[in-house]
């Protein structure tokens, strides 16, 4: 597994991740850092379940092929809403 080159950051720093939530939103972006309070993502796209007729799973399947178009440069997702964090490259 490739290691990050920034030992002061979370091990997923620089890695493109899929952050799913208990709500309708699911996020894809590069992890900058995370702690007990929040997950900080950069170059982020967000999808709401059902938008464009696509479920979360269908959105992730498409994102895993070629990536996503960012909607936000930087976004903090409250950790309490997060149900899973997965590497996009492993999906």
């Amino acid at each position: 597994m490739a290691a990050t080159f920034h030992p002061d950051r979370h091990e997923l720093h620089g890695i493109t991740v899929v952050v799913d939530t208990a709500g309708a939103e699911i996020y894809v972006g590069r992890c900058d850092d995370m702690d007990e309070e929040r997950v900080i993502l950069v170059d982020v796209d967000v999808h709401r379940d059902g938008d464009g007729g696509r479920s979360k799973a269908e959105y992730v399947e498409r994102a895993a092929q070629l990536g996503v178009w960012k909607k936000f440069d930087r976004l903090a997702v409250p950790r309490a809403h997060v149900t899973s964090i997965r590497r996009l490259g492993e999906l």
């Binding site: 597994m1 490739a2 493109t16 070629l66 990536g67 590497r87 490259g89």
Partner: peptide, 10 residues
């Protein structure tokens, strides 16, 4: 090959 298919691999 997009970035996310490089960063998690050797």
């Amino acid at each position: 090959v997009p970035r996310h298919r490089i960063e998690s691999r050797s």
